[in-house]
Structures are given as structure tokens and as C-alpha cells.
């Protein structure tokens, strides 16, 4: 093989081998990193852990709610911006995309604390969902906008020309045409929400511990094969999600 191929093989190994090893060792019967035999013990522990179950439920609920909201809001926003630019809005959305998570997190924390002084409410699921919608909108706009940029502007004009009003042109022509982009955007919003630790940990309340928060605590405590099992499950779960979405987009 040529040197370039060798190099690329090395890079692919670097990207994938650590995760594959982690998945493999989730089936190890020993809790240490010496292979002793196949076992599903860690998966059993994972599924029977009440705290993990609760956290997974919270994560799914938050991700589902924020994905739906962010996808709808972001798609409408992209369409509005496509019709006519609003530099300050697209600039702000872009800025929020490149803002380090830790800064988004502490600024939201400061905002919620400040808001608590004026209105009676506490950190909890709602604050997490609001925060997730806020940072997911930019991702949705990014993906849907990319799709709109390649769209043919004459399509909506054709719809108007054939007797559709503006609303029908959007609903019957532009939206169906955007469907693959919107689905990709929703998938991205779901993954960033489900995965987020930094912002979530800052704006979560006592009732809203998420899977990444539990995972983080377990990882800090030290070696734990249950973490490997959860990791393997997340890895496979997201892999399946992406495959399904690619299938759906092709049809």
C-alpha cells in the first residue's frame, strides 16, 4: 500500500479503535481491564439501576421536547431569513454556535438566577429544555439554511403563478422540498441535546439529572464497566438512528 493509505488507516484506527475497545470490554466478566470472559453482568446492572433509568428518561424527554421546539422554530426562522436577510439575527445565531459551551452555560445560569429574583420559579426540567432549545436553534438553522441555499427560488414563484397563496406555497411546496433537511436538522438537534453535559449541568435542578450528568459522575469516580456498557449502548443507539435517518432521506 502507498504511504497515504497507511496514514489514513492509522487515522481511522485512531478514531474508531478506542470506542470499539470500550464496547468490547463492556462484555468482559471482570471489572478490571483484563479480559476474563463474556458476560452481560454490566448490562444487567445498567438496566436495573433506578438512578440511571430516571436519568435516561429525563434525557429522552428533554431531547424530544427541545428537538421538536427547536426544529419548528429553526425551520421557520431559516425560511424567514431566506426570504429576506436579517444580519443581526443570523449573526447572533452564528455567534451562539461558536460560543464556548461553558460561557453559554454560565450566562444562562446567571440569567435564570437573575430571573428568579423577579419571578418565582426554580431550576428544573423547564430551564434545561429552554436552554437546549436556545442552543439547538442555531444547529437547525445551519442545516436547513444549507438546504434552502441550493433550493430553486422559482419553485415558490411557480406555486404562486399556479394559484397558490403565500401560505400554500410554503406549506405545499417549500416545506415538503425541505423535508430531508429538516429531518437531518432534527437528528442533529436531538443528538446535541441528548449529549450535552456542560450547559445542562449548570442549569439543571434537583429533579432534572440527565444521563450525561450521571455518566460524568460515574466516570470521575473511577473505572466502572457499567459506564462502558452505557457508552456502548449510546454508540449503537446513535449509529442506528443515523442509519435509519439516512434510509428515510433516500426514499
Amino acid at each position: 500500500m502507498r504511504p497515504l493509505t497507511w496514514f489514513a488507516v492509522g487515522i481511522y484506527a485512531f478514531l474508531h479503535v478506542p470506542l470499539l475497545i470500550l464496547c468490547a470490554f463492556s462484555f468482559n466478566s471482570s471489572r478490571f481491564t483484563i479480559w476474563e470472559g463474556f458476560s452481560l453482568e454490566w448490562y444487567r446492572q445498567m438496566f436495573t439501576d433506578a438512578q440511571l433509568g430516571e436519568a435516561a428518561r429525563n434525557s429522552l424527554l428533554i431531547a424530544a421536547a427541545s428537538t421538536v421546539l427547536a426544529t419548528v422554530i429553526g425551520t421557520l426562522c431559516s425560511y424567514g431569513l431566506w426570504k429576506k436577510q436579517a444580519k443581526w439575527l443570523s449573526g447572533s445565531l452564528y455567534l451562539s454556535l461558536v460560543t464556548p459551551e461553558i460561557i453559554s452555560g454560565i450566562s444562562l445560569l446567571a440569567f435564570f438566577q437573575w430571573a428568579f429574583r423577579h419571578w418565582q420559579f426554580q431550576l428544573g426540567m423547564h430551564t434545561v429544555i429552554l436552554a437546549h432549545v436556545a442552543f439547538s436553534i442555531s444547529y437547525v438553522v445551519l442545516v436547513v439554511m444549507a438546504r434552502l441555499r441550493t433550493a430553486e427560488p422559482a419553485l415558490e414563484e411557480a406555486a404562486l403563478d399556479l394559484g397558490a397563496n403565500e401560505w400554500q406555497a410554503f406549506w405545499l411546496v417549500t416545506l415538503p422540498m425541505l423535508r430531508p433537511g429538516i429531518m437531518a436538522a432534527a437528528l442533529l438537534a436531538f443528538t446535541v441535546s441528548f449529549d450535552d453535559y456542560v450547559i445542562t449541568s449548570l442549569v439543571a435542578g434537583v429533579d432534572s439529572e440527565t444521563l450525561p450528568m450521571v455518566l460524568y459522575a460515574m466516570a470521575r469516580r473511577g473505572a466502572n464497566p457499567v459506564v462502558s456498557a452505557i457508552s456502548a449502548l449510546i454508540f449503537v443507539g446513535f449509529g442506528a438512528l443515523i442509519l435509519i435517518s439516512e434510509r428515510l432521506q433516500k426514499t
Partner: peptide, 24 residues
């Protein structure tokens, strides 16, 4: 294949390196 790890949890990816690099 380059993007695949990106779709996996960032926390999980970081943990994979802890799993490789820690003393045990």
C-alpha cells in the same frame, strides 16, 4: 466514518480515552 464518532456522545468519547490511559 470520519463523522461517525462525532455523532457519538462527546462524554463517551472522552471516557474511552480514560479507559485506555488511566493507571488501571
Amino acid at each position: 466514518l470520519i463523522m461517525l464518532p462525532f455523532w457519538t456522545s462527546f462524554l463517551v468519547r472522552t471516557y474511552a480515552w480514560m479507559f485506555l490511559l488511566r493507571d488501571t
